[in-house]
């Protein structure tokens, strides 16, 4: 299925990527010895997030190197690469989760709707409401299903009264595709749900506070194929309202859910392109070697 025909995908942001290149790219022609400039178009028109020359250091370790990448509105971007390549570190920059790590420093510019998220005037709490996150392992609060969802809107003051809060809870659970399954047991503990349901509960919790972007760090790695399929289908639905950035080790998942795919290697962004292109004829040899399983 082409990107243009994908349900809910406007295609607007990647039009520039669909223009025919001046010269036909030949798959796997850029070798590992080529310079480390990113292959492909990193920018989109009217981005939700614009990252420019982002570097991350853990003490003296240079974990993310000069990465520039836009995240479009209503776009799903998958980040793939071997362990330790910097994809999760880069993801965590997008809502300043790296602030919680003592020896971590971030340089470069990251703008959310044109606003620098690392500016001193930015409060990280509302930032993390705007840029929500779903982790590898479902982490529901040790509270009821209802309270798991209601907690965020309540502390962010998104509901004026109980009825409005209830409306948010119901809408969030519906958007996360969980409502029908748990509508009769909202007072049960969130931890009593299955793994897949818990992960969807976490997604519902993230969307309850009206985010613009949802970051997902290997959200399906602890789930069975059925629960994974449900989450992937949900992502397709959610991208009508949100931008989604997903880190995944499953190449097939990246191919199935994302509009664009970014390949990371040793802290560098090697290649970014339409997902169809990455998985049929990637330009960089490193990308080709990784996705075809030729990396040691």
């Amino acid at each position: 299925m082409s990107i243009a025909s994908r349900k809910h995908w406007s295609g607007q942001n990647i039009l520039q990527l669909q223009k025919a290149p001046a010269t036909e790219p030949v798959s796997g022609t850029l070798s590992a010895q080529s310079d480390q400039r990113t292959v492909g178009t990193v920018t989109v028109d009217d981005p939700r997030i614009r990252c420019t020359d982002v570097n991350v250091y853990y003490g003296s370790t240079h974990a993310v190197k000069n990465i520039s990448l836009d995240i479009g509105r209503n776009e799903i971007v998958a980040m793939i690469g071997p362990s330790g390549c910097g994809k999760s570190t880069f993801l965590r920059c997008l809502n300043r989760m790296n602030d919680t790590i003592d020896n971590c420093s971030v340089t470069g510019n990251i703008e959310l709707d044109g606003q620098d998220i690392n500016d001193n005037s930015i409060d990280v709490v509302p930032l993390r409401a705007r840029v929500g996150m779903v982790f590898q392992k479902p982490n529901p609060f040790p509270k009821s299903i209802y309270e798991n969802i209601a907690f965020g809107p309540r502390i962010h003051g998104l509901a004026r009264d109980k009825a409005e809060l209830e409306e948010i809870v119901i809408t969030s659970l519906q958007k996360a595709g969980l409502w029908k399954e748990i509508k009769d047991c909202l007072d049960q503990p969130g931890t009593s749900l299955s793994g897949g349901q818990q992960q969807r509960l976490c997604i519902a919790r993230a969307i309850a506070i009206n985010p613009e972007v949802i970051l997902m760090d290997e959200p399906c790695s602890a789930l069975d194929p059925i629960a994974t399929a449900v989450i992937e289908d949900l992502m397709n639905e959610l991208c009508t309202d949100y931008s989604i950035v997903i880190v995944t080790h499953s190449m097939q998942q990246a191919a199935r859910v994302s509009h664009r795919t970014a390949y990371f290697h040793l802290g560098n962004l090697i290649e970014v392109a339409k997902t169809e292109q990455i998985f049929t004829h990637p330009i960089h040899q490193l990308t080709s070697d990784y996705i075809t399983g030729r990396i040691g």
């Binding site: 796997g28 097939q252 998985f279 049929t280 004829h281 990637p282 075809t292």
Partner: peptide, 9 residues
Amino acid sequence: RGPVARDLR
């Protein structure tokens, strides 16, 4: 194998 890229081609 779920081949991709040059293997798929």
